[in-house]
Amino acid sequence: MNVTPDDVTLATELVVEAAALAARIRAEDDLQTRSKTSVSDIVTAADYAAEARIVEHLDRERPEDGLLGEEGTSREGTSGRRWVIDPVDGTYNFASGFDYWCSAIALADGDRPLLGAVAHHATGTVVVGGPGVPTTINGRPVSPIEDAAVSQLGVATYAHPAFIVDHPGFAAWRRAAALPATIRMLGSGSMDLVGVATGRLGCWFQHSTPDWDWLPGTALVLGAGGVTERVEVDGLVWSVAGPPTGVGQIVDALQGDAA
């Protein structure tokens, strides 16, 4: 299943417009924030408005494609393709006034990413790419991801306090988190994966990652020459992205093998 130049243009326009809309709503102090699963898992009026804007465009431009959005959009398509939408990724950062957030979208064939686009409004940065579309940042090709051992890399991840305290899967996380040169917990999966694709971060790993947090950034990493892998350990599905050696070592550590 191919990605067309029109798909690339559309994905770029969608995330830029969604991010601009979300930023405008935040500037107008009209977020209307509420919690979902925890104090740090929140949704705002900007999330809903940005998703609705994207869906409105896709209904008109790609009516045959399926849709899946973090804030409730779900539609089966007839083309075999689907658009996966995260209107504001890093909502806790967004609502707190931090700028480590983005709007993200992926075009996928089932669970296989074809294209990803991520807009970081604060810097005017748009990163677009996929397995058949070399990743670019504001239209410029990114440098290919170089292979490296995880011990030489900065790695982004996340561990919720409740996960650290009493979840049996924390042992796997601890094994993997002990390997890198340093770890970062920054609060936006798509922004972290942009960091991997553009060389600011070495690897990324996280458990229980929904498609809207995984597919946009995965496409960018693949388009930059990196690899991605998913593995189940102790009932949790872990998602890992980065250079081949680093990803392999993280997967081994999660599974309890020697790194």
Rank of each mutant, 00 (worst) to 15 (best):
I137A: 14
V126Q: 00
A45W: 01
G130A: 13
A117F: 12
E61R: 11
S38K: 09
G154N: 15
V118I: 15
Y100D: 13
R82S: 14
D41L: 09
D86V: 03
G77S: 09
D99H: 14
H57G: 00
D109N: 11
T157W: 08
W83Y: 01
W83V: 00
K36Q: 09
S38D: 07
A104K: 06
T78N: 01
G116K: 03
D47G: 00
P134K: 14
L31A: 10
S151V: 14
G77M: 08
D41V: 08
D59G: 08
P144F: 07
V43I: 05
L58S: 11
G97K: 10
P144R: 11
R60L: 10
V126F: 00
E51S: 10
T37S: 15
N93Y: 12
P144E: 04
E51I: 05
S40C: 00
K36T: 10
I145H: 02
W101M: 03
N93E: 08
A148R: 13
A159N: 07
P161C: 00
D41M: 08
V128D: 10
W83R: 00
G90S: 01
I85W: 08
V155M: 11
A148F: 10
H121T: 05
G154H: 15
P63L: 02
D41Y: 04
R75L: 06
Q32D: 15
Y48K: 14
P131E: 04
G139W: 13
L115A: 02
A45G: 09
H120T: 08
G77I: 04
D29G: 09
N93H: 12
